[in-house]
């Protein structure tokens, strides 16, 4: 039976490029872009993408009835978070609606999500740091991990984000990137791996990371 990879579609943003990239690296797998909890339950692997503002993402995930399915999958299936999907794995985020102080997230990895505060710091060429952090930046591999297989240390990946994760425990840090300061750009815990960058937009080595996920046996 073909392997089933479920991409969780909770109604935020465009997941087509994530779908296309998995279709490209796993032509024999059944790739589902799904809004149905039972399909996530049936899948062998689960991808949690994310785009847009955290409060909206968390609300949509709850309202769509997919939150329980994702928490269930996180117990034992290989789970890959991407961008806001990475940030959602943490306890809470500083990205909020006006008036509230923190947005509670999934609590699968201890730590929090903060906004870049780079005012007053200058880039090497003397210009201000821009937020969002947008473009290709290097990822230092902090641990050996099957998802880094075949990807050279300090390979550049494509980023677009204004918030970043701050894990409580060093053991969850899989990769780091420098933008003003060093921040965590990839995390892992047991059967979970997640990236702040967009592998589906990171050319050859981004596809390699997805390919590694497809064959990962945590």
């Amino acid at each position: 039976m073909a392997q089933i990879i479920a991409i969780v579609d909770y109604g935020m943003g465009n997941l087509r490029s994530v779908y296309q990239a998995f279709h490209h690296v796993a032509p024999d797998a059944k790739i589902l872009l799904t809004q149905r909890p039972e399909e996530i339950a049936q899948a062998h692997r689960v991808v949690l993408p994310g785009q847009g503002a955290m409060p909206d993402c968390m609300k949509q995930l709850k309202d769509s009835g997919l939150l329980e399915a994702v928490l269930d999958a996180a117990k034992n299936k290989p789970l890959l978070g991407v961008c806001v999907g990475e940030q959602m794995l943490f306890d809470q985020s500083a990205e909020t609606r006006p008036g509230s102080s923190l947005t509670p997230c999934l609590g699968l990895i201890p730590g929090e999500v903060r906004r870049f505060e780079l005012q007053g710091q200058k880039q090497a060429d003397g210009s201000d740091f821009k937020v969002p952090h947008m473009g290709w930046n290097q990822v230092r591999q902090d641990i050996a991990h099957p998802l880094w297989a075949g990807i050279p240390d300090l390979t550049s990946f494509y980023f677009v984000h204004s918030y970043y994760v701050v894990p409580k425990e060093v053991k969850n840090i899989a990769g780091s990137t420098e933008y003003g300061n060093w921040f965590t750009s990839a995390v892992t815990r047991d059967n979970i791996f997640a990236t702040q960058f967009h592998p589906e937009k990171s050319a050859e080595y981004g596809l390699r990371l997805y390919k590694n996920f497809v064959s990962w046996q945590p």
């Binding site: 490029s17 279709h23 490209h24 494509y158 589906e200 937009k201 990171s202 981004g206």
Partner: peptide, 8 residues
């Protein structure tokens, strides 16, 4: 293009 080229 998007189905074959994986950059922004």
């Amino acid at each position: 293009v998007a189905s074959q080229v994986f950059i922004p």
